[in-house]
Each structure stands twice: as C-alpha cells, then as structure tokens.
C-alpha cells in the first residue's frame, strides 16, 4: 500500500489511499462536533439560567413525532451500515437498494420535521413573534435554540441525502465496489454522525421537560 501511495500520480486523491481518506473524514467529523458544540454550550447555559421557562416551553413539543423520527433515523443508520457490508461482499445491487432506503428514511424524517415546524409557526411559536415576545424570556430562547439546532441538523440531513444520492450513482456504475469503497464508508460515518447529533437533540428538546 505504502509503495503505491508514494508513486501515485498527482491527480485526485490517489496520494493518500484508504487510511488517509479515513483520517481526513474523522478530522472533518471533529470539526462538526465542535461546530455543534457551540450550540450545545448555548443550550446548557440558557437551560441553567432559565430552567423553569425551559420546562414550560418543552411541554409544547410533540413526543410522538420526536420518537418516530428517532426510530426512523436510527433505522436509516442501520441500512447505511448494511449497504457498506453489501458492497464489501460484492453485492452492489443490494447496496444500492439499501442506500435508497436510507435516503427514503432521511426524507421521511424531513417531512415529519416540516409538519412539526409548520404546526408551531402556524400557532405563532417562533423567535420574535408577537406571541413569544409576550411570554417569559427563557421560553423564547428555548424555541430559538430549538429552531437553530434542529434546523442546522436538518441541513446536515439534507446534505447527507445528497451525498448518499451521489454514492448511489457511484455504486450502480461500479465506481464503488468491493475493492474500493472508502467513499461510501466515509459517507456512512457522516450519516452516523448526523444520527448521533439527533440522539442528543431528542432528549434535550422532547424528553427532559
């Protein structure tokens, strides 16, 4: 492997090989972690300042939709992991179906999110609305955090769907195969990361009330 890396031509990522690509992805996920970390920091500070307001505000969250979305996202991580195993065993067709399933579940997650947001906005629950400005300060901060954190998370889901879509095409064309699947594996890492963030968002906004 090392020999091949050294003499690799200059185009593309051929310099690095498998391990290098994994290194790069893990480093990238560290930056993502810290990016979300800033938001979790804000959440903890405001939760400790306005514990009672957070309690009241969180009562409005719909635990059913939240739980359904959690199950959907965890299942989609499962199909993602299976799709990588399928490619490693040489079954590109199965892998493509599993990736399509992951994308479908990501979309269902977003649709649920859309109804959740839409319902709240319809009832005037959003930052700076006349309704929220009349309530306690902590309640509005709770919903500001809710929209920003789930919003940025949803943005990551959308990006993930796009990337998995690209991987799906590469898997069907055979560019991803049992000999070269690091792109798919890195996509999987990204998708699991997005899933993990939700696993923390779910209790913070829906369960701990």
């Amino acid at each position: 492997m090392a020999e091949k890396e050294m003499t690799g031509s200059k185009d593309g990522e051929k310099h690095t090989g498998y391990t290098g690509a994994k290194f790069g992805m893990w480093f990238f996920l560290m930056t993502e972690l810290i990016f979300f970390g800033g938001l979790f920091l804000l959440y903890s500070v405001y939760r400790s300042t306005y514990a009672a307001d957070f309690h009241i505000a969180a009562l409005d969250e719909n635990i059913v939709i939240g739980s359904v979305n959690t199950v959907i996202l965890i299942t989609s991580s499962f199909t993602m992991a299976l799709s990588i195993s399928a490619v490693r065993k040489g079954d590109n067709r199965l892998s493509a179906w599993l990736q399509a399933g992951t994308i479908a579940m990501g979309c269902v997650f977003l649709v649920n999110k859309y109804f959740e947001w839409g319902d709240k906005i319809g009832r005037g629950i959003y930052p700076n609305s006349t309704l929220m400005m009349q309530k306690k300060k902590g309640e509005m901060l709770f919903y500001s955090l809710y929209y920003v954190m789930t919003g940025i998370h949803a943005l990551h889901v959308i990006i993930g769907i796009g990337v998995i879509g690209a991987m799906l095409l590469l898997t069907r064309s055979g560019a991803i195969n049992s000999g070269s699947f690091v792109k798919l594996e890195n996509t999987g890492l990204y998708w699991h990361f997005v899933d993990m963030v939700w696993i923390y968002l779910f209790p913070l906004f829906y369960l701990v009330t």
């Binding site: 480093f27 560290m30 930056t31 993502e32 810290i34 990016f35 800033g38 930052p127 500001s144 920003v148």
Partner: peptide
C-alpha cells in the same frame, strides 16, 4: 485550525441568524 475554527463558524452563523430572525441569544 481544525479544532478552533468551527467555534467561530457557529458563532458568526448565529450573528447572521440573530440579525435576520431576532433569536435573542
């Protein structure tokens, strides 16, 4: 670069959102 920059990324993003939506952070 790797471990510090994301902090300012999220902070500046919040400033932009704050200016557009009045989040209040």
């Amino acid at each position: 670069q790797l471990l510090a920059t994301p902090t300012i990324a999220i902070t500046l993003l919040l400033v932009i959102l704050e200016r557009f939506f009045g989040l209040g952070f």
